[in-house]
């Protein structure tokens, strides 16, 4: 007990452990698993990342025409990096950066917006499929 008291007394004259965080930054270590970043140019749209993502934080929206749209929900992501490992072109199309995501507020629609988007993606797939089917049958009938 007296030793702890002595330690406490000594501690008064020692520098504190505390890092004054928002004012001075804490350096994140090398290899910190931060945000998943994406480069549209290099992507080959294989959908592998979407398939392996455990929580389903990466979704591709399939418009009726044109390229797929990549969507990523950083508030759903569990930062496991499985998508990057699954990606055929890691470090080019998809990579894990060392920046941390900022907190969301209501306006960001972290959850509700994503519910909507999930629905939309599902719908878009079906629509796309239907459209493809339709065009196929149309093609067939044209032939």
């Amino acid at each position: 007990m007296f030793k702890s008291m002595f330690t406490a007394l000594i501690n008064l004259f020692k520098p504190v452990h505390t890092v004054n965080y928002p004012a001075e930054d804490i350096v994140l270590p090398k290899g910190y698993r931060g945000l998943i970043e994406y480069d549209k140019e290099s992507c080959i749209f294989c959908d592998k990342c979407e398939k392996v993502c455990p929580p389903g934080a990466i979704l591709f929206y399939q418009p009726l025409e044109g390229e797929k749209e990549y969507r990523y929900n950083p508030w759903l992501c569990i930062y496991c990096g499985e998508c990057v490992r699954a990606c055929p072109k890691p470090e080019e199309a998809l990579w894990q950066s060392e920046t941390k995501q900022h907190s969301a507020v209501k306006e960001d629609g972290a959850n509700e917006g994503w519910f909507v988007y999930e629905e939309a993606c599902k719908q878009s797939r079906e629509d796309f499929k239907a459209a493809k089917q339709a065009s196929k049958t149309q093609n067939k009938s044209e032939e």
Partner: peptide, 24 residues
């Protein structure tokens, strides 16, 4: 904790082990 973060990239959820080996 610093050690773990440096090795695995996260303080708590390491996601270090994968089937067939380790990630880092």
């Amino acid at each position: 904790m610093d050690l773990q973060e440096a090795i695995s990239g996260n303080r708590v959820q390491f996601d270090f082990i994968a089937i067939g080996g380790v990630n880092r």
